[in-house]
Amino acid sequence: MKNVFALVEHRQDKIRDISYELLTKGQELATLYGGELTALLLGNELTKFIDSLKPYAHRIMIVEDAKLKDFNAESYQIVLSNILKQEQDFLLLMGHTASGMDLGASLSVELGASIATDCTGIEIENDNIIAIRQMYEGKLLAKVNLNIKAKSIITIREGSFPPQVSNLSAKVLDFTSPLTAEPSYRRFVEYIEAPLGEVDITKSDIIIGIGRGIKEKENLLLVEELAKTIGGIVGCSRPIVDAGWLPKDRQVGSSGKTVKPKLYIAIGISGAFQHISGMKGAETIIAINKDPNAPIFSEADYGIVDDLFKVVPILKNKLTAMKA
């Protein structure tokens, strides 16, 4: 019988959304295996998180330790290997996030486990664990077999499994932290906000791309408000950089950045080939343009043929309402 574990990710007193995605998929797999899903919760002052996690898992294993207050891959690895070395047959899920990337691969080595990273799907075929993941910059999908079935780690790309609240009521277990001190060889110092101007649009999940259609610099405000509403970053085509309305590091296209966000909303962009080559890898593309023949519509998934100055304010209100 295989037990499934999911590492709860939290930062600055908030559980990160990926945690619920992992728990949702984890529960499905645990049910399939007839085993249990354990949410692993490491950190300091954790009781506040327990209620929101309870419906998602069979067990919550809590490792309460002031030395685990902020994520440190080395301390996390010590704790997790202590927990999982006692398991005969496990599958561990974690986010393919800055934390999961830092931790997963080295933990797999210590545990002698198979690992597949950045996965968007998991299938169990004839008892084999098959991870589905993108390769070659999303041009192909791969089925990856994790050969060490009894010890497997899978890191999940954010947004792969929409969270679904379940009706479980997890049993809360305490696990005594094996840490005597934070490892001297790696110490957390602090979090800092990236200085302005260093915004890396290639790392953003949501990008609003603007083009000549926005006509004047003043109209940027409109788009920036929309971006704020949906937690995105504003990128642009070359003319906007040329006009000096946005810095060069916001330019999407063959001579700018190549981006592959989950969502790209092209506003007032006609779709010159230089721009398209930079954003065609986005998972979902929405285009808003007055010109029904704009080439952007042959790259987009959804299109609105309309005046952006009419659409954007209404869209912003509706999205704000949706988020609330």
């Binding site: 060889y185 957390f188 602090e190 990236a194």
Partner: peptide
């Protein structure tokens, strides 16, 4: 846009 500072 968040960075982690660490000593190693």
């Amino acid at each position: 846009g968040l960075l982690e500072v660490l000593d190693i």
